[in-house]
């Protein structure tokens, strides 16, 4: 007779460290778990995660997409490519198969990263739950029906019931996770940080300065500044929704502040040491000052949305133009330093 026994509880020792951003946080902690010490800013910088993109043809809730970082998946793939890490990725058509595979890895003592929707994760505070399908988290165990989770953006370790996690992993729609599960398969013994950092900085500065489309990089910031100045004052409700949406993309969606500018400045400080280039520390300070301007822009825009400040499109537009020209100088200087 085969008695049906509940599988034993599993808890793989894992160091939970809170991050600003889910993807860079998840991959950095998975790599640290695989004995490659790397900080979140370093992971984000080497992956060339920073950007600015205004994508009017992608609508969310009727509003265009404003992105301050590269599309989902770019951080993990970019980092793996530049550091020579082999990643294992797995997607599933059947939710049951996806959950069974997750259980299998946990039983084998492997910690894995997964992609989920943020909306169905029950441990998120209700007001923070939105339909965003490219959230990333790390699963390090299972106790009874509860998965033990290190969610990079949450300050503490959390748990999620199997049913809810299954729903979060298999939502449909744009960026559908399809149960994506990943872990570093092999990490090289010798990692060339110097070369990786140089390449990554060249990629980011090139994109910010030289993309031909006026919706990306520094030109993208200028386009949005112009767009804000030209908003029709009669459409006040819509304009407020748009500005609120911009501020949310910049500040609320795990950016570490100022739309990833502070995170990138932190990376530049670390890079200054690795490359032995003190100039990068100065550039980090400059970028921090621009980040502060982005934050002032966000505060003004938010207050105008709430009528705590008179609506002033020209003021907001001017702040963005200021950010654009200062960032342009920064990227040129940075590019010259890593030539």
């Amino acid at each position: 007779m085969n008695a049906v026994t509940a599988p034993a509880d599993i808890e793989i020792p894992f160091d939970h460290r809170q991050s600003a951003h889910c993807e860079s946080g998840a991959i950095a902690s998975l790599l640290r778990h695989a004995q490659l010490p790397i900080s979140e800013p370093m992971a984000f910088g080497i992956a060339a995660g920073l950007t600015y993109a205004y994508l009017p043809f992608l609508k969310f809730g009727g509003l265009p997409l404003f992105a301050y970082r590269m599309p989902p998946g770019h951080v993990i793939r970019g980092l793996a490519k530049r550091l020579g890490i082999r990643m294992h990725f797995e997607r599933f058509t059947q939710p049951e198969a996806g959950m069974a595979a997750l259980d299998g890895y946990l039983a084998a003592g492997r910690v894995v990263g997964i992609q989920t929707s943020a909306y169905w994760l029950t441990y998120f505070p209700p007001d923070m739950r939105f339909h965003f399908n490219a959230h990333n988290l790390v699963v390090y165990g299972k106790r009874g029906d509860q998965y033990l989770i290190s969610d990079p953006v949450i300050d503490i370790r959390v748990q999620c019931a199997a049913q809810a996690l299954k729903k979060a992993r298999f939502t449909r729609g744009v960026l559908a996770p399809k149960g994506l599960l990943y872990y570093p398969q092999s990490v090289p013994a010798q990692v060339d940080f110097t070369g990786a950092i140089r390449k990554a900085i060249r990629f980011t500065t090139g994109m910010m300065l030289y993309t031909p489309a006026p919706i990306l990089g520094v030109r993208g910031i200028r386009t949005v500044a112009r767009k804000i100045r030209r908003l029709d004052p009669r459409a006040a409700h819509h304009n407020k929704l748009l500005l609120g949406h911009i501020v949310r993309m910049q500040e609320e969606i795990g950016t570490g502040g100022a739309g990833f500018r502070f995170l990138y400045a932190s990376f530049l400080q670390e890079a200054a040491v690795v490359l032995g280039k003190p100039a990068l520390t100065q550039i980090a300070d400059e970028l921090t000052a621009v980040g502060d301007e982005w934050r002032r822009f966000a505060l003004h825009a938010a207050k105008m949305c709430k009528d705590r400040m008179p609506m002033d499109y020209a003021l907001l537009s001017g702040q963005l133009l200021d950010c654009a020209s200062r960032e342009e100088k920064i990227y040129r200087w940075l590019r010259a330093e890593v030539k």
Partner: peptide, 26 residues
């Protein structure tokens, strides 16, 4: 949530924030 900010010496560190007016409004 975690933000990144400079300490007294100018070095970047992770800095938890319990909320910000601008974020709360939007």
């Amino acid at each position: 949530k975690l933000l990144y900010a400079q300490d007294q010496t100018g070095r970047y560190v992770g800095a938890p924030s319990s909320g910000w007016e601008a974020e709360e409004i939007v």
